[in-house]
Simulated assay, not measured.
Amino acid sequence: MGYTVVDCDDVETAEDRPCEMRRLTEPAGLSKMAVNRFRAEPGEEIPLAYHYHETQEEAFYVLSGTLFVETPERTYEVAADSLFAVEPESPQRAYNPPEADAEVVVLAVGAPNVSGDVEAYDPDGR
């Protein structure tokens, strides 16, 4: 058996991201899922681009604030203490709009923990 406690504030923030991102997967010793914590100020995006994953499922649990998630069909408003789940091959872009009055803090979990399955999505080139 193995157990790990990770203080998110002890984890370095990722470079070159549109908002604060702390990669928690490795510090937690996880291999089958990816776990990240995001803190986005008003006007900041969470992903690098509008995208989808070929095989990975994603879940965004909103710890505080309101997360907005744009999809091809509509934009969702996900309140604190709510979970937004994304199936593979489902395009999405998560963000905190410029007119928001507060930051949004999100815990994101993706499984399986794979690299290279991210594809850019162009909403205008459907």
Rank of each mutant, 00 (worst) to 15 (best):
L83V: 14
P98T: 07
Y3H: 14
A94Y: 11
S31G: 05
R74Q: 14
E57K: 06
D7Y: 10
E41I: 00
A100H: 01
F38L: 11
P98R: 02
A79D: 15
L48G: 15
E103Q: 12
P72L: 11
M33L: 14
P18E: 04
Y121G: 02
A100L: 03
N96D: 03
R74G: 04
H53G: 03
V105W: 00
V11D: 06
N36A: 12
V104M: 00
L83P: 13
A34M: 15
N36Y: 13
M33Y: 08
A111N: 10
D122L: 06
P91I: 03
P47N: 02
D16K: 11
D124I: 02
A85M: 11
T4C: 04
E87F: 10
D81W: 05
A28E: 09
H51A: 05
L30V: 08
Q56M: 15
A59G: 09
E70K: 14
G65Y: 14
S82G: 06
V69F: 13
Y52S: 10
D10M: 13
K32W: 09
L67F: 03
Q92C: 12
M21H: 12
R22T: 10
V105M: 01
E41M: 10
S31K: 03
L83A: 04
P72C: 05
N113V: 06
P18L: 07
P72H: 07
E54V: 13
E103A: 13
A85D: 14
Q92E: 13
S31P: 02
D117G: 02
P18N: 04
V114N: 09
G116W: 10
H51Q: 13
A49F: 15
M33V: 15
D10L: 15
S90V: 15
A49G: 02
P91M: 04
R126I: 06
G65F: 11
Y50V: 07
G116I: 08
M21I: 11
E20Y: 08
V62F: 10
P112G: 01
R22P: 07
G110R: 00
V114T: 14
P27G: 09
C8K: 08
S82F: 13
R22M: 09
R126A: 07
D117Q: 01
S115K: 05
R37E: 12
T13K: 13
F38E: 01
T75Y: 10
L107S: 02
A14M: 13
A80P: 12
P97E: 12
L24Q: 01
L30Q: 04
T66Q: 09
D16R: 08
P91D: 05
D16G: 13
V35A: 11
D101K: 06
S64Q: 11
T66P: 02
E99D: 15
Y95D: 01
P123W: 08
A100K: 00
P88W: 06
V69T: 07
T13Q: 14
H53A: 01
D10R: 11
R37K: 14
Y61D: 03
S115Y: 14
V5M: 08
K32E: 15
P98M: 02
E44V: 05
A40T: 05
E26D: 14
N113P: 04
V104K: 00
G110S: 12
D101I: 02
T66C: 11
E26H: 06
